[in-house]
C-alpha cells in the first residue's frame, strides 16, 4: 500500500496538492484546521513510502507557516487563535503538494500533459527536452563559481555585494543556456520537430484503476475542511 503514491500517475500525484490548496480556503477556524491537518497526517502515515523526505518538506513549510502566524498575529489584531489557524491553513495548503512534487517524474508528467490534458504537443516535447539540461546547468554553475573565485570575484561576507555576485552568475548561466538552445533547436529540427504537427508519443499515458481510486482519495482529503465546516466544527 505504501507504494501507491509512487505508482499513481503524475497528474494524480499533483492533484493531491491541488485539492489540498482548494480545500484550504474553507479553513477559517482552529477545529477545522486541526481536522484537515489530521486527515492529511493519517493519510500520510498510511500511504507514504518513507518519512524522511516528507518531514524535510514539512519542515520547510513549517518555517514559512511561522512567518505567517507571526504576521497574522501582528497585523490581524493580536488574535492568537486566528494566527495559529492561519499558520495551520498554510501547512494544509502547501504541505501535501510540496511532499507530492518530490514523487513526480517529469518525463511521465510530460506524457500525461500531452496525451491526457492535450496541451500543445510541441511545447510539451520541448519542455521535456529542456528539463534534460538541468544537470548540465549544474555543472556549468560549478565552473562559473570556480572562475569567479580564482579570479578574485568570489562571494564575500557582505550580503549586498553577494546580490551582484548572484546576478553576475545568473547572467552567465543564462548565456550558456541560451547558447545551447540554438544548437538544440537545429538538432531537433533535423529530426523533424519543425513539422511535427501530428506528433505521436512512444509511451502511453495510462489511467489505471489505482489512479482513479487515488484521485478519489485526493479529492476526499481536499473536501475534509468543507465537510468539517458544514458539520459545524
Amino acid at each position: 500500500m505504501r507504494s501507491v503514491v509512487l505508482r499513481a500517475n503524475p497528474l494524480v500525484q499533483l492533484s493531491v496538492g491541488l485539492f489540498s490548496l482548494l480545500g484550504s480556503f474553507w479553513i477559517r477556524s482552529l477545529p477545522v484546521a486541526l481536522i484537515a491537518l489530521g486527515a492529511y497526517v493519517v493519510a500520510g502515515l498510511l500511504l507514504l513510502p518513507g518519512w524522511r523526505y516528507p518531514l524535510v518538506c514539512l519542515g520547510f513549510t513549517a518555517i514559512a507557516a511561522v512567518t505567517i502566524v507571526y504576521s497574522t498575529w501582528r497585523l490581524g489584531g493580536h488574535d492568537v487563535e486566528e494566527a495559529v489557524t492561519a499558520g495551520l491553513r498554510i501547512v494544509v495548503l502547501a504541505g501535501p503538494g510540496s511532499v507530492m512534487a518530490g514523487y513526480v517524474d517529469p518525463s511521465r508528467l510530460a506524457d500525461h500533459l500531452a496525451q491526457t490534458l492535450h496541451l500543445p504537443a510541441r511545447l510539451i516535447a520541448a519542455f521535456a527536452g529542456a528539463l534534460q539540461k538541468f544537470t548540465g546547468f549544474g555543472l556549468a554553475w560549478q565552473q562559473l563559481e570556480r572562475v569567479r573565485r580564482v579570479r578574485g570575484f568570489g562571494p564575500s561576507r557582505n550580503p549586498l555585494a553577494n546580490g551582484g555576485y548572484a546576478a553576475n552568475m545568473s547572467f552567465a548561466l543564462l548565456v550558456q543556456a541560451l547558447r545551447g538552445a540554438s544548437a538544440t533547436s537545429i538538432a531537433m529540427d533535423a529530426r523533424g520537430f519543425a513539422t511535427a504537427h501530428d506528433r505521436t508519443w512512444a509511451e502511453p499515458a495510462p489511467w489505471t484503476r489505482l489512479d482513479r481510486w487515488a484521485l478519489v482519495v485526493a479529492a476526499l482529503l481536499g473536501c475534509v475542511p468543507i465537510i468539517a465546516r458544514v458539520a459545524g466544527a
Binding site: 499533483l14 490548496l21 518538506c57 502547501a94 504541505g95 503538494g97 507530492m100
Partner: peptide, 12 residues
C-alpha cells in the same frame, strides 16, 4: 517545484 527538495509552497 520539481527540483529535489522542492519548494516549501507546494502546489501553491
Amino acid at each position: 517545484t520539481f527540483i529535489a527538495g522542492g519548494t516549501q509552497w507546494g502546489f501553491s
